[in-house]
Structure formats: C-alpha cells, structure tokens
C-alpha cells in the first residue's frame, strides 16, 4: 500500500505535470486553446519551423553546449591526475565553483570581461588599449565566448571529480601498469588506455551535461548575444512579448525543445541502462 502511494506520488510529480504542460503547449501552438484561439491552425507551426529562428537557436544552443563540454572535458582530463592522491583537500576545492550560483558566475564574468571590466582595465594599463571602446566585445558577442567560459568554469571541476571516480572504479592505475608492461609509452597510455576509458564511462554524463548547458537560462540571458539567442532566451522572449500572436509560437518552441530533450535523454539513458544491466 505504502509502495503504491509513493510510486503514484512520484509519477504525479514527475510525469503528470510535464505531460499536462506539453499537451497544453501543443494545443496552444495549434490554436486550439488560449486567448486568441480561433480553432485549429498550422500557421504558428509554419512560423516555428520556417521563419521564427527556432532551429537556429536550438542549433546554436547545442553548439554552445558541445563546445563547453569539449573544452571542459579536456581541461578535466588533463588536470584530474593532479588531484587523485593527496589529502582530499584538492578535491574539496573543486566543489567551490560548484557552490557558486550560475547567476553569480555570470555577474562575475560580466564584471571581468565587459568593456569597462577588469580585463579591459588591465589591458589599458598594459598599454594595449587607450579607452574602453577599443576592448573587444566579449560579453553579448555572437560567439557566446563568455557564455562558454562561464559554463566551463562550472563544468570542469565537476568533470574532474567525476573522472577521479572513474579512474578509481575502473582501476586505471593497474591498467596503466599493465599497458606499460606491454611496452606502451606515457603518451600511448594516455591516449589509448586512459582517454577511451574515461570517455566511454562518462559519455552519458557528457550528453546530459550538454543538454543541461543548452537549456541554461541566466548565463545567456546576461552574457549571451541577441542574435542568435540560446533556445531558452528565445522561447521566453517570445512568451513575454506584448504581441499575443507570439505566444503560440513560444508554446510550440517550448514543446519542440522539450521533445528534442526527451529524445536525447531517452536515447542516451536507455543505452546506459542496457550496458549497466549487461554488466550485472
């Protein structure tokens, strides 16, 4: 009885709201419900698919996510061996960036990299620029430079801690000794033993984290470009505009984004569950 109550409660919290939200968003985007509803129409979907910039935003967000993951992966990959042994204080320090809110990271990077920011002032004193206007636009630029940097400082410590765990659980030290006995050099061990293991064992995490970064909001809101915009900023802007005819587009975009996330999560986790079961 208790089991049934808890499972039902769990499903009511996890599945029901998302499903209800998705249904409402879908109906709204088809013009079936909402204040401006005039019956079934595909015009909003035409806009979403062809002219709204939805796909550009989605693609842009995934690219930002992918670049963040790529950079963070390699930083973590190269530094985690420094923290494996020792008192554990090094590992504890890695938790500090994880304890700083994304909003604060974004604010800090804004103070660092904006035209009148810290780096700009440093450049002035080094004689590289003579006024703030000469400082390259890093905040709100099209390449999402500081958005990526902000996510990297939050991701690489987490990856570092995660790789330490993989290193220990997969007994990489022993495998390294074994590979060296076979005649492998340090770099061969790193590229042919350590890297493949770490990558394979962390790939689900990497995909989930990519989705996570692509769906981040406050960082691109403060530091991101106006065009193209990250998917969350794009959707929210459409939603909060005064034009009521943008709302169905916002709902459609949210629906489509959620479906893409759902597919990615289902695909990656199903695979991970299968390998987990195989191991047992």
């Amino acid at each position: 009885m208790k089991k049934k109550i808890l499972i039902s409660f769990f499903l009511v919290i996890t599945v029901v709201p998302v499903l209800a939200g998705l249904i409402y968003a879908f109906l709204y985007s088809l013009g079936i419900t909402g204040v401006i509803s005039k019956g079934l129409t595909f015009s909003y979907w035409k806009e979403i698919l062809y002219s709204s910039g939805f796909f550009l935003s989605l693609f842009y967000s995934l690219i930002i996510g992918a670049i963040t993951i790529f950079i963070s992966f390699f930083i973590a990959y190269f530094i985690y061996p420094f923290f494996i042994n020792g008192s554990g204080k090094g590992q504890l320090i890695m938790f500090i960036p994880l304890s700083i809110p994304p909003m604060v990271w974004a604010f800090y990077h804004y103070l660092m990299f904006s035209g009148a920011g810290f780096i700009s002032r440093l450049s002035y004193h080094l004689g590289l620029i003579s006024n703030p206007g000469e400082f390259p636009v890093l905040v709100n630029d099209n390449f999402g430079t500081i958005v990526i940097l902000t996510h990297v400082v939050m991701a690489f410590p987490f990856f570092t801690l995660y790789f330490i765990r993989i290193h220990n659980s997969e007994k990489i030290d022993r495998l390294t000794t074994l590979a060296k006995n076979f005649g492998a050099s340090d770099s061969e061990v790193s590229w042919r033993v350590r890297l493949p293991i770490i990558f394979l064992k962390s790939r689900v995490l990497l995909i989930l984290y990519l989705v996570f970064v692509a769906g981040s909001y406050e960082v691109p809101l403060l530091l991101g470009s106006q065009s193209p915009r990250m998917i969350t900023v794009f959707t929210l802007e459409k939603m909060q505009r005064f034009d009521l005819y943008d709302k169905p587009v916002a709902y459609g975009a949210a629906f489509l984004y959620a479906i893409v996330v759902l597919i990615i999560v289902l695909f990656s986790l199903k695979r991970s569950f299968r390998t987990d079961e195989g191991r047992v």
Binding site: P17, V18, Y24, G215
Partner: peptide, 26 residues
C-alpha cells in the same frame, strides 16, 4: 526501476525555465 528513473531524469534535465513555462497556465 529503469523506466521509473527515466521519468525522474526528464524534469531534472529539461531546462527549469521551460518547465516553468509549460506549467505556468496550471
């Protein structure tokens, strides 16, 4: 277990602000 876990991952991985947008009307 695994099916139930999948349903737990979803609200967690989905961007919170988009989840909020989907839930707003309710």
């Amino acid at each position: 277990k695994n099916t139930l876990l999948l349903s737990a991952y979803f609200p967690y991985v989905l961007s919170p602000v988009v989840l909020a947008l989907l839930l707003q009307v309710y």
